[in-house]
């Protein structure tokens, strides 16, 4: 798969990574190269093969419906939660105003 700069820009936009035109021009052949290499998988006969869902046999465990049973996965920790926030006010995280 050959990736053009327009595609690179589209993917970067989807991934929310700002790139310049030069970045896109540089990345296009690089990504084409990598995608070309991984495309050798096309040739593998996978008819009737299920995609892997779990690497080793294991059952999904479910938790009990108990609030704050483990402080590490419970609430009521606002100060800790916001300790690293780049910007916060009145107990809220803040972002540039969003117009919906």
């Amino acid at each position: 798969m050959s990736v053009d700069t327009a595609t690179v820009k589209k993917v970067a936009a989807l991934a929310r990574i700002a790139i310049t035109d030069e970045d896109a021009a540089r990345l296009a052949p690089e990504l084409s190269n990598i995608l070309g290499w991984i495309e050798q998988l096309e040739g593998v006969n996978t008819a009737g093969v299920e995609p892997m869902t779990a690497v080793i046999p294991n059952q999904l465990r479910l938790r009990d419906d108990v609030i704050d049973a483990d402080p590490l996965t419970g609430g009521g920790i606002r100060d800790a939660l916001m300790a690293n926030a780049p910007q916060a006010e009145h107990g809220f995280f803040t972002v540039p105003k969003v117009i919906e």
């Binding site: 990736v3 595609t7 993917v11 989807l14 991984i38 998988l41 593998v44 996978t46 892997m52």
Partner: peptide
């Protein structure tokens, strides 16, 4: 890219089958 619309099966699903 490999997860984006139209490519998911060709790349991701195929890779997970190869993984099997």
């Amino acid at each position: 890219y490999v997860l984006s619309a139209g490519f998911y099966d060709a790349y991701y699903t195929q890779a997970q089958k190869v993984r099997t």
